[in-house]
Structures are given as structure tokens and as C-alpha cells.
């Protein structure tokens, strides 16, 4: 069977290299023509830089750093819990003194105000602590997803580059091919291959 097949370019570009010569026998999968990949190589460089940036961001987002921050939060909470206990004791005392006629109502207000202030600080500290823990977890998962995506984009561009090498889809003889430097349009013929019989 002398079937002649035309291999076409998947994109508008230049022929970078001819890997075969006219009349040569090509085995299935052998590279015949390599198309220009300057744009894709530039994309690879950008995507690699993106991967590096994300890896750096993740390394700065370490568990150790989060643990340190959580320890600080814990110390603040402990300190404020003691402060609240003391302030509440003072409120009880000033109330008793006032009700016994021995202390001013302003002293009660003052003590209440202080206790309320500490309680608010404690709630705020608890809030911050939970927020830090949750934020660290969510941030790390977001970065992981972004890194996965960046790796996938890199793999995609490498596959695109791989497809810029036109390979013989079947054993055959090269009957015609474009030479290095030749421009080619999308769908334009780059190689004519005569399918080897048998």
C-alpha cells in the first residue's frame, strides 16, 4: 500500500529544525520536524519563576512560625485570664464596701470598667488566637492549591512544547519536508510520509 500522509503544523510558526531527510525511513514515533518554541520557552521561564515564588512563600509559612505565634497568643490569654479574675474580685469588694456605706459608687464604676476592659481584651485575644490558627490552616491550603496549579501549568506548557515536535505516526518514508527556518501556517503541511507497506 503506497498511502501518502500529510503531517501538518498545529500552529503558525517557523521550522526550528529538520530531524530527517528526504528518502529516509522513519520509524513510528521518530521526530521529523521540530517547530519553533520561543514563546513557549518564555512561558516556561515565567511559570518556573511563579513556582519558585510560591515555594518560597510556603517555606516562610512554616508550622514552626505558626506554633510560635500560637504560643504567644496562649501566654496573652493566660495573662488576661488572671487579670480578669483579679478585676472581678476587686468589683465584688468595692460593691460590698459601697453597699456597707464605706465606699463611693465611683469606685464601683471604676472597678467595673476595669473588669469589663480586661474581659473585652480576653475575648479579643481568644478571637485572635482562633483566627490565627484557622488563618494559618486556610492560608497553607490555599498556597498548596496555588502551587499545584503552577506545577500543572508548567506541565501543560511542556506538553505543548512536546507537540511542537512532529513525529512519524507510523513507519514510513519521508517524501517531502520543510527545512529549518521555513515559515508554516496552522494546518500547513510540514512532512509528507509514504506509509511503509507490511
Amino acid at each position: 500500500m503506497d498511502q501518502l500522509i500529510v503531517l501538518k503544523s498545529p500552529t503558525l510558526t517557523l521550522v526550528k529544525r529538520s530531524n530527517a531527510s528526504i528518502g529516509a525511513f522513519a520509524r513510528k514515533g521518530a521526530p521529523l520536524i521540530t517547530l519553533d518554541d520561543t514563546g513557549e520557552q518564555a512561558a516556561i521561564a515565567t511559570q518556573q519563576a511563579n513556582v519558585n515564588t510560591l515555594i518560597k512563600a510556603m517555606s516562610e509559612f512554616t508550622r514552626v512560625e505558626t506554633d510560635n505565634r500560637m504560643r504567644v497568643h496562649k501566654r496573652i490569654r493566660e495573662h488576661l485570664t488572671k487579670a480578669v479574675d483579679s478585676a472581678e474580685a476587686l468589683v465584688r469588694l468595692t460593691k460590698l464596701r459601697h453597699e456597707a456605706g464605706a465606699g463611693s459608687v465611683f469606685a464601683v464604676f471604676e472597678a467595673l470598667s476595669m473588669a469589663t476592659g480586661y474581659r473585652q481584651q480576653l475575648i479579643a485575644a481568644q478571637y485572635e488566637s482562633t483566627k490565627t490558627a484557622r488563618g494559618a490552616d486556610q492560608g497553607f491550603r490555599s498556597l498548596t492549591l496555588m502551587l499545584e496549579r503552577a506545577h500543572a501549568e508548567l506541565a501543560f506548557t511542556r506538553q505543548v512544547i512536546d507537540r511542537l515536535t512532529i513525529k512519524a505516526p507510523v513507519d514510513g518514508y519521508v517524501r517531502w519536508l520543510l527545512l529549518a527556518g521555513a515559515p508554516v501556517s496552522m494546518g500547513g503541511a510540514v512532512v509528507r510520509l509514504q506509509v511503509a507497506s507490511g
Binding site: 470598667s113 475575648i123 481568644q126 478571637y127 483566627k131 486556610q138 492549591l145
Partner: peptide, 24 residues
Amino acid sequence: IEGERIQDFATMPRIPKDVTTIEY
């Protein structure tokens, strides 16, 4: 993940206002 943040925002404990005058 953004949804979790929104949920956290909605359910985090709230910091009360100054309740001095309510308590006494």
C-alpha cells in the same frame, strides 16, 4: 476555602460593647 473564611467571620465570638451600665 474562602467559604470557610466567610463562615468563620459569621460565627467567631463577638466582642461585646462596654456593658458597665448594664451590669450595675
